[in-house]
Nucleic acid binder design. Sequence first.
DNA 1: CGATTGACACCAA
DNA 2: ATTGGTGCCAATC
Length: 117
Amino acid sequence: MKYSQHSTDFFQLVYQVCREIPYGRVTSYGTIAKYLGSARSSRMVGWAMNNAHSQNPPVPAHRVVNRNGQLTGKIHFANPMEMEVLLKKEGIEVKNDQILNFKEVFWNPNVELNLEA
DNA sequence: CGATTGACACCAA
DNA sequence: ATTGGTGCCAATC
C-alpha cells in the first residue's frame, strides 16, 4: 500500500538525503532534519527510517545515527549487528554501538551539498 | 478529528 | 559529567 509516496513527502526527502550520504560517511537525524528545513523534526527523520527498508531502493539507514554518533537505530535493522558490520566495512570505527571517529566521518549535507552545488 | 507514536535534540537539575 | 524530562513535527491508528 502506497501511503504517501509523493516526492513532496517529508519522508521521501529524508530518504533522498540518506542516499546522498557518501560511502564511509555518516550523519545525524537532526542534521538531516535541519537540512530539510525542519531542524526540530529530528524525530521525524528517525521515524522515516522506519519505512526506509520498505523503500524500493533501501536507503543506507546504517549511515544515519543520532547526534552522539551512537547506533541507536541498529535495533530496527533486520540484523542489528549488520549495521555495525556495514559501517566497519566502510572504514568507520564502531565500538559498542558508538562511532569512534564520528567527527571524522560525519557528513554535513548543509555544507557539502551546498559546496557541490 | 483526536490521541499516540517515533531509530532525536536540547535544557534543567 | 550523568540522568531525567520536555519540546517538536509529521504520520499512523
